[in-house]
Design a protein around this nucleic acid. Structure first.
Lengths: 168, 168
DNA sequence: TTTTTAGTTCTGCAATAGGAGAACTAAAAA
DNA sequence: TTTTTAGTTCTCCTATTGCAGAACTAAAAA
């Protein structure tokens, strides 16, 4: 397997080699948001591709990966909404690409998700009604307060953003 | 090992048993934010404890876990800032507790972290200057725009929140 | 109808993460 | 000084995750 890699590397042009390094580096960045190494690399590759879409085999070849790994990675990214695909008439292939809007929504959703800790803390407070340690409860209430605020802000953040763009 | 568990469960009172179930349920919730099962359970337990702090052995016993697992979980949570401990004079034990302020900061930091995708996308755009697919670049610029906005909002969100609390 | 294409799904292995238990350490107590 | 306490660190094992390769499938092409 190492030898295979060497072999393929030898075939790569210098330019592709540079791109591979960028993909790997950027891939590691995406891994930190919880994606598998392969999903992270696929996403990075699509971001850096010209044209900004690629067919299945081209992804597989570029990343020196198995079909199953690529298939699972793409399906994972599509389920999340970060990737989708386009087709061309007379061509049965799918051309996968980053869906920037979907990606943004995924990020927004994660922030909204954070705000749902509020409900968990509310449950905690319900369990702590008889406490002798009121200060702890008060601190938790502050956290709830902040998360409610965040929640409200996130609700209309798109509206506010668009408003700000127009007044510019 | 299963038998051990049964044995300990038999010893538990009905009330503790209920609490254990709550801790497990809440623990699974915390696992979703990337913590190990044990760290997630420790955090949940501390949230539900009366008093809201516990010594090492009490945590270990409640969770039927090994010392190493508890030690690693606590240190992990303390490094993140979600947990700290207090001490009492004439008592060498540490009493571990949730640090609500630290927890809030961790959540805020995660949101700020999301906004740093902006820099990554800027790098992508620098690689894509010669593209024939300007629309894709434009969409990426929109994502950057939003993340910059988010970034700015997060910078002063604490100030805004406090302001809002006072005017109430 | 048979063959090819564009993937998907299944099976099994390899890497990684998480936790148990024991050995260890530093400070306090006896 | 020796012993106990309150954890930490190390070694090993187990569970989970991620991926390769092969078998499979559905639709298109020949």
């Amino acid at each position: 397997m190492h030898r295979q890699l060497i072999k393929k590397m030898a075939k790569s042009t210098n330019k592709t080699e540079q791109k591979k390094q960028k993909v790997e580096k950027m891939g590691i960045f995406f891994e930190r948001s919880g994606h598998s190494p392969m999903a992270a690399r696929v996403f990075a590759l699509l971001l850096l591709s010209e044209p900004p879409y690629r067919d299945f085999y081209s992804i597989q070849e570029f990343l020196c990966a198995s079909k199953s790994a690529v298939s699972n990675a793409l399906n994972h990214l599509m389920r999340e909404g970060m990737v989708d695909y386009i087709t061309f008439s007379g061509d049965r292939k799918r051309y996968f690409r980053v869906n920037p809007k979907g990606w943004l929504e995924v990020m927004q959703e994660k922030i909204r998700q954070a705000a749902t800790f509020r409900h968990l803390i509310e449950d905690v407070l319900n369990e702590r009604t008889d406490t002798k340690y009121l200060e702890f409860n008060e601190e938790l209430k502050k956290v709830i307060g902040f998360l409610s605020f965040l929640s409200k802000e996130m609700e209309n953040i798109n509206a506010r953003w668009e408003a700000m763009q127009e007044e510019k």
